[in-house]
Design a protein around this nucleic acid. Sequence first.
DNA 1: CGGCGCACCTGAGTGC
DNA 2: TGCACTCAGGTGCGCC
Length: 285
Amino acid sequence: MPELPEVEVTRQGLLPHLPNRTVRAIWWSGKKLRSEIPHTLLLEEIVNKTVITVDRRAKYLLIRMSNQAVLVLHLGMTGKLSIVPAATPREKHDHLALTLDNNMELRLYDSRRFGNVLVWPGKTAVDDERRFSDREGVEPLGEHFTVSNLFSLARNKKVPIKQFLMDGKRIAGIGNIYANESLFKSGIHPATPAGKITRKQWQLIIENTRRILQDSIKSGGTTISDFISSSGQPGYFQLQLNVYGKKDQPCPRCSTPIGKTELGQRATYFCPSCQPRNSRRKKQT
DNA sequence: CGGCGCACCTGAGTGC
DNA sequence: TGCACTCAGGTGCGCC
């Protein structure tokens, strides 16, 4: 389930545990995630190095080490991180464990194995990160998420606005839930061609997306002891969802039954009344 | 390049 | 209880 907020909550959950800790050992499952776990690089670049800090770019966590190497983690659909005592029995879908110098372990659990583990070696990390970051879209919570940038990015694009928002090459971190929710709040039909979105509408999308992401980060921010959840656990945000997964339920704003369709092979939820197709209509907050 | 379909996986839920 | 089928919060590749 990790979209930007869940990854950010995970990052914040790691911050009390990882910086200044030295990695003493690693274990990996031998199973392939999105790509093979680079165990040799982990041994060379991560073991016996100390964590400096944990950053996030798009839906990736960047664990920066004392030798400039970066351990890059992507949680895919089902990835979760936890910090547990090293003696805790491993679970079936654990795929990576880093044993720390306080005898705790950072563990990556991922049943569907759509996650990814990469290592940028200290020697090339700066270049590796630049190449990586150049491929990722603008950060919705960053300073470049502006009307002028998005309006020009979307110019002449026929792709539905919902798919545009979810395209990580253009905008980072917005997944299916938040694309649906943001467009509902903005009163914009998800199938509207991106190039048809007016500056005014972009302003709404920007404000609503930011607010929803930030609220969600806040709701998930209550970290439970030593478990860093990236799933529904502390994710109290699902209680605030307006349309996602709510097919046929009354729209919270106007009571019209929520509709469901498909865009880019992804379930798409919207209110047919609040998000009219020929969106020349009143908007809201 | 744009747009689409598909592939990568496992597990939960549903209906028979 | 079992089986077949659908669906899931992500991403990248190959093809027209």
